[in-house]
Design a protein around this nucleic acid. Structure first.
Lengths: 210, 210
DNA sequence: GTCTATAACGAGATAGAC
DNA sequence: GTCTATCTCGTTATAGAC
């Protein structure tokens, strides 16, 4: 039953990454979590690193597509933040953002791991970028913002928050709340009257030229 | 020459953490980077983990106090972002934010490492929080924001960006630029005329009550 | 495809000479 | 305080029985 073993190993890798971090993953810890023999890691994936890469890719694809529908329904920045927070909660429980964060930490050492992390994060970035583009389509602040860059900043910020949560859960909750307030602020900006709107546009033009 | 060896080991730990990540640090790799005998790790610090904790604490204290002066001179959010970017660049070159990120990644496994990361990040958070408080003292957006939470979010975001940079340097640069634009936006908000200012205040009050 | 056994090596940590 | 030598264990990875 080869297919089943492969799946078990992939799931076991996610579990090991989540529970022990990048420094704690090994063929043995993965096999233990998967409930299979250690040698099968090498039979099916060649090296531990290849297995980690495969698990990270597969998991991220599943997760991103799972949230694509919800993100497609978002119409404001505040809604986006709400979805983002729900996402963060679920991901935290399932431990998948942790996986991304740990692979990213491991990417420091290994170029192949770095490439895998880049691609996995790229999936999230694409999704967020599209949503931002749509949500801000009619906003006066759109012209002032580099949306692709913003999507990348948001993605990176979530990774940082995920890591931070392990060290200081209370602080992380505060941080999430603060981000929600920032989103409200931009909503307010979006919602100004025509006079303020014009002032804003001028002010932005001045800033851009400096 | 005990003091010297301790220093070498602490510096070697930073270097090892920077170059090999949390998964790659070991008594041997640290001793190699420090140019001392492997057994001295245990003589001076008991365990590898204790050494990592000591190095992280010491390095962060030095770094934070090094930037305290610059942060004290900041008077606007945009300036803060500029200082932040310069800080990020220098830290990147010296590899110290990396150290924090890697320790944070390792904090998943070890409660003692988690505590060390919490304290180290707390030093940055305190500094940033104080600066934000000062910079936003006269701002209409101050009331709408949870500044302690914001300081934590900013700190976590920088950690995420630091990790991201290893995997995708170009994207990270874009993200940093986008963040600078967001700061400009808040500066604009700060700089509105009295009419828009009042509208903003009302709008924020409504948002807060929802 | 899956298992056991094992080779080869690096890890943390300690004992003891100097 | 520093070194060498060593113990014990966990690691990757492979060979070969089933």
């Amino acid at each position: 039953m080869s297919g089943d073993t492969r799946e078990r190993l992939l799931a076991g890798t996610i579990a090991a990454l989540r529970d022990k971090g990048i420094a704690g993953v090994s063929a043995r810890s993965i096999a233990g979590a998967a409930g299979v023999n250690q040698a099968l890691v090498f039979y099916h994936f060649g090296t531990v690193e290849e297995l980690v890469i495969a698990a990270c890719q597969g998991e991220t694809q599943v997760r991103v597509s799972q949230y694509a529908d919800q993100l497609a329904g978002v119409t404001s920045l505040r809604e986006l933040l709400t979805v983002g927070q729900a996402l963060h909660e679920k991901e935290r429980a399932a431990g998948n953002t942790q996986v991304l964060a740990q692979v990213l930490a491991g990417a420091q050492t290994s170029p192949t791991l770095a490439e895998a992390a880049r691609q996995a994060l790229g999936l999230w970035v694409t999704e967020i970028e599209g949503t931002l583009q749509r949500v801000l389509a009619d906003s006066p602040i759109k012209a002032a913002l580099d949306i692709p860059g913003l999507a990348r900043a948001v993605s990176a910020a979530f990774i940082g928050l995920e890591l931070y949560e392990a060290a200081d859960p209370d602080s992380t909750r505060h941080a999430m709340d603060a981000l929600a307030q920032v989103a409200v602020l931009t909503d307010v900006l979006d919602d100004l009257g025509p006079v303020a709107r014009r002032a804003l546009r001028n002010r932005l033009r001045r800033s851009a030229n400096r």
